[in-house]
Computed example of a mutant assay.
Amino acid sequence: MSSVSQQSDVLAPRYDLGGTTPYDDYIRASALAGLQQTRTDDPGEMAFLVTSQVMELWFKLLVHEWQTAGAALRDDDLPTAMTALGRSLDELQALNASWLPLARLTPTQFNAYRPALGDGSGFQSAMYRRLEFVLGERSASMLVPHAGTPGMQAELKQALGEPSLYDEVLRLLHRRGYPIPQAVLDRDLAQRYAGDPAVEQIWAEIYAAPEREPELVRLGETLTDVAEAIWRWRGDHLMATRRAMGAKVGTGGSSGVAWLAKRADALIFPELWTARSRV
């Protein structure tokens, strides 16, 4: 067959769709592209806006994945939970890469549009707060910044009282016969879980005999990967902030770098880390 006839067999996409494109109808790309409203003439502000909005979308997707995993764990469907957790690891890599456009900001570059933020701060992100709640990082005080948006605050309040992803893991272990303390199972879900020595011992026993419960070892390691990725995201946030503004007060009134450093040290799924010393 000649090259001319081969080329004629290649079908071009349809150009005349007679209206809006099905792609935009589904993806809503035009709506997304209209959300960037800069407030200064500095060209770097667009990178800050788009990067922050992209992070918000990753937060939303991660919450979805971890809710999916939690529901599957509740149904004792470990394969579905592991699939959702696996997807979230790839998504966390993309989230962490979102820092790259902002990671090397000099103070002068950041100050060029920082006044446009006013008192705005990533600390005020409702979706990030929702992400932390599903991971078990919880405090009722985190609801206060959203008092001016009652609907959003109500959603966060509801999430505050729901089992976290790790709560569902502990309940799964309990149903499988592991002696999770009743005080852990019945604890106040609105409070941050700080860990329990009995749970630490259970994870140590699971890791010490991986041939007995290989599924649980894989679950523990995948959760550890999630926690490590969050730790790296917080670390990248800390370094980007330190580079852009040093030790100045944060845009939301916090102590800036010192506050982020304190948050970065918090362990997610604590016994999965502390149990390693017992194996």
Results as ranks from 00 to 15, higher is better:
106 T>I: 04
143 L>F: 04
135 L>I: 01
95 L>V: 08
101 P>G: 06
100 L>H: 08
79 P>G: 13
109 Q>L: 06
120 G>P: 01
112 A>E: 05
86 G>V: 08
122 G>W: 00
94 A>K: 10
175 R>D: 00
152 M>H: 08
132 E>I: 08
182 Q>Y: 02
171 R>Y: 02
188 D>M: 00
120 G>W: 00
81 A>S: 12
198 A>N: 10
130 R>A: 15
143 L>A: 07
109 Q>P: 01
121 S>C: 14
193 Y>S: 03
215 E>R: 12
73 L>D: 12
161 G>V: 03
129 R>M: 13
124 Q>W: 11
173 L>Y: 02
201 Q>A: 15
191 Q>R: 08
129 R>E: 08
126 A>Q: 07
161 G>C: 06
215 E>W: 03
162 E>G: 05
123 F>S: 05
127 M>K: 13
139 S>R: 13
199 V>T: 14
93 Q>R: 14
210 P>Y: 06
205 E>V: 10
131 L>Q: 09
212 R>T: 14
156 L>T: 11
91 E>A: 15
138 R>C: 00
123 F>Y: 13
172 L>S: 07
165 L>S: 05
93 Q>V: 14
83 T>C: 09
201 Q>E: 15
93 Q>G: 11
115 P>R: 00
101 P>Q: 09
92 L>Y: 03
155 E>A: 11
169 V>E: 05
117 L>A: 05
147 A>D: 13
105 L>T: 02
215 E>A: 15
142 M>H: 12
147 A>Q: 15
189 L>H: 07
119 D>Q: 11
124 Q>T: 08
156 L>R: 04
208 A>I: 01
98 S>I: 07
199 V>A: 10
76 D>I: 06
112 A>C: 09
106 T>P: 02
85 L>A: 10
175 R>H: 01
147 A>P: 06
201 Q>L: 10
197 P>M: 09
160 L>G: 12
151 G>L: 05
169 V>Q: 04
211 E>Y: 04
75 D>Q: 15
147 A>R: 14
131 L>D: 03
117 L>G: 00
169 V>H: 04
97 A>S: 14
158 Q>F: 04
158 Q>T: 15
197 P>T: 11
92 L>S: 13
168 E>Q: 15
128 Y>W: 13
136 G>Q: 02
177 G>Y: 02
